[in-house]
């Protein structure tokens, strides 16, 4: 099933902006994710968010860097650690936070929760709770792009733990066999719940996992938003013109797996070390200061982001619960009249 492919138009949109403007955009987006997640953690502690809640703190550079290469029509799909991708994709923080609190104003009207959110207009196809399932689904999005020959790319994210699921390799095989336009973004934060990559994986260099399918891969510093964006652009170009590509993003999750995980399985000092030396936001802040950005400018962004998050939290607390009549809606779609 070899397919004709539209040629990529080439050139990344972010590069057309001056470094400073581009960095400011990244900075704002990454800070929004971090502040949002901190607030979500707080609302969870207050009992306003239930169940599982997987925070993205530490991994912000990945969703934000990759977003810079996304074009209209491209899709993103990920697992349950999804708040960051949604915010980066431009979903309204209010809708995202209200979904976390299970309210009518949430993006799924409160019926999906933290792990199951979607926004077709933003190209965001979820938000999936089963480890690895999004990999075949994301490859299916790419199959649709290829079927339509519309030049769109599917960015399919998954974790180091998910990288050991069988369907990932079933998908790799079909993706390369059919030259599907998909970029597999492995967010290697070094742990799957309490299990480190070393304890779960025979091949710990996850970017090599496509080798036996002839899928090229590369390791990327996932704490450096510029490195992410550059590798992302390369991968997207390859996906658009040739077929699948794997990016292994080396990153770190600061918090526990979900809210009730104290993450005691990590060696003493590991988190502190990462926070001190590799924090993606600090790293970018330093670059911005290096090009002469003034303290007040950064402060203004901080204040703006803080207000957005406060408003989102307020909305998420005050939006009503879904009406009981919503219980039976959205189970089936009505068949169109024939």
């Amino acid at each position: 099933m070899a397919r004709a492919r539209k040629n990529g138009v080439g050139g990344q949109k972010a590069n057309s902006l001056a470094d400073k403007d581009r960095w400011l955009k990244y900075y704002r987006s990454m800070l929004l994710i971090r502040r949002f997640e901190e607030r979500a953690g707080q609302l969870y502690g207050m009992g306003l968010i239930g169940g599982f809640c997987h925070l993205y703190i530490g991994q912000e550079a990945i969703a934000v860097g990759m977003e810079s290469v996304k074009r209209a029509g491209d899709q993103i799909i990920t697992g349950y650690r999804d708040h960051g991708h949604m915010l980066a994709a431009g979903m309204d923080p209010k809708e995202v936070m209200a979904e976390l609190t299970g309210r009518a104003g949430g993006s799924s009207h409160g019926k999906g929760g933290s792990m199951h959110m979607f926004s077709v207009p933003n190209g965001f196809f979820g938000g999936h709770g089963i480890v690895g399932a999004q990999v075949s689904l994301g490859t299916g999005l790419a199959l649709a792009n290829s079927y339509r020959n519309d030049g769109a790319v599917s960015y399919t994210y998954f974790g180091d733990g998910a990288a050991n699921q069988g369907q990932v390799y079933e998908s790799f095989n079909m993706a390369e066999l059919w030259s599907l336009p998909v970029v597999y973004v492995i967010e290697n934060n070094q742990y799957a719940m309490g299990t480190s990559v070393e304890r779960s994986s025979a091949e710990t260099h996850l970017y090599r996992r496509g080798l036996s399918f002839n899928i090229p891969g590369e390791e990327v510093d996932g704490m450096d938003v510029d490195a992410v964006a550059e590798a992302g652009a390369r991968a997207a170009e390859h996906a658009r013109t040739k077929g699948p590509y794997i990016l292994e993003m080396k990153t770190y999750r600061y918090r526990g797996h979900s809210m009730s995980d104290p993450a005691k399985y990590r060696p003493q000092g590991e988190l502190e070390e990462v926070r001190k030396t590799r924090d993606p936001i600090d790293h970018l802040k330093a670059k911005l200061e290096g090009v002469g950005l003034k303290e007040e400018e950064l402060k203004a962004i901080d204040a703006e982001v803080r207000q957005i998050v406060l408003d989102a939290a307020e909305y998420a607390r005050t939006s009503p619960e879904p009406d009981p009549s919503e219980l039976y809606t959205d189970v089936y779609l009505e068949a169109a009249a024939r």
Partner: peptide, 26 residues
């Protein structure tokens, strides 16, 4: 062959691909 597609023996995978393609509107 664009519309009648032989898959490898990979039920979990191709079912996921089918569902993904349906989510994309096919």
């Amino acid at each position: 062959e664009r519309r009648v597609i032989d898959t490898p023996i990979t039920e979990h995978g191709f079912t996921g691909l089918g569902v993904g393609a349906a989510m994309a509107g096919l």
